[in-house]
């Protein structure tokens, strides 16, 4: 490992304090360059896909109710145990959700509940400005969560069948995803586009390359 030391100052540089003057030239240059501050209330930060904001239960476009089947996967996977679901079963073992609550103040916003839901019932919207002065309004129950979805959909301009394409677990083949999560098949579909996620596609290409290239 080669260590690069700065050359020692000679006498002239010490007398004229060249390093201090170089530092001052830098600050002067930066004085005239544009500032990078974002003026928050007027300019909002850009939202990228997959932003984990306020929770919402997706409203099914056909039945106008939530899609949740009370499989309890989100409640089980939540690391901070903030999702509480209670359900009852009828004679044909179909489950009905009695109450679905999310304690938003406990949530660490990891997004596991969204990734693990098989039917795409819960999602995380891009809303982050919902701070309040009392705690009660952060304890979301089912109606509030559906309302969150309505509010988000009203402001975003998507249509009723919108599924956020970001929330799909990576590295899983498309065929094993539930129907609600699979993307619409475009006309120029090829087998290489089967897998989800960039890393899976690059590793897939790597595999095909090494097997085609033979031994090195």
């Amino acid at each position: 490992m080669k260590v690069q030391y700065k050359p020692k100052r000679n006498l002239l540089e010490t007398i004229f304090q060249v390093e201090i003057l170089q530092g001052m030239a830098l600050t002067l240059r930066k004085l005239f360059s544009p500032a990078i501050t974002r003026q928050y209330p007027q300019e909002k930060p850009p939202m990228y896909p997959g932003f984990r904001g306020q929770h919402a239960l997706v409203r099914d476009s056909l039945t106008n109710e939530s899609k949740c089947v009370a499989c309890m996967r989100c409640a089980t996977v939540c690391p901070s145990r903030c999702i509480k679901i209670s359900y009852h079963e009828d004679e044909s073992h179909k489950r009905f959700v009695d109450s679905y609550t999310i304690e938003a103040l406990r949530c660490v916003f990891c997004g596991f509940c969204v990734e693990v839901c098989p039917v795409g019932a819960i999602t995380m919207t891009e809303v982050f400005e919902y701070a309040t002065y009392n705690r009660d309004t952060t304890y979301f129950d089912k109606d509030l969560l559906l309302e969150n979805w309505d509010r988000f959909m009203a402001g975003s301009g998507h249509d009723k069948t919108y599924v956020n394409p970001f929330w799909r677990p990576r590295g899983i083949p498309e065929s094993s995803l539930p129907a609600q999560r699979r993307m619409n098949v475009p006309d120029d579909w090829t087998v290489e586009k089967q897998f989800v996620g960039k890393k899976a596609t690059s590793s897939q290409q790597c595999l095909t390359a090494t097997t085609a290239g033979g031994s090195h």
């Binding site: 600050t27 002067l28 930066k30 004085l31 360059s33 500032a35 990078i36 501050t37 003026q39």
Partner: peptide, 9 residues
């Protein structure tokens, strides 16, 4: 001025 020298407002 200190703000602008530190590239902030």
């Amino acid at each position: 001025i200190i703000g602008h020298m530190q590239v902030r407002l």
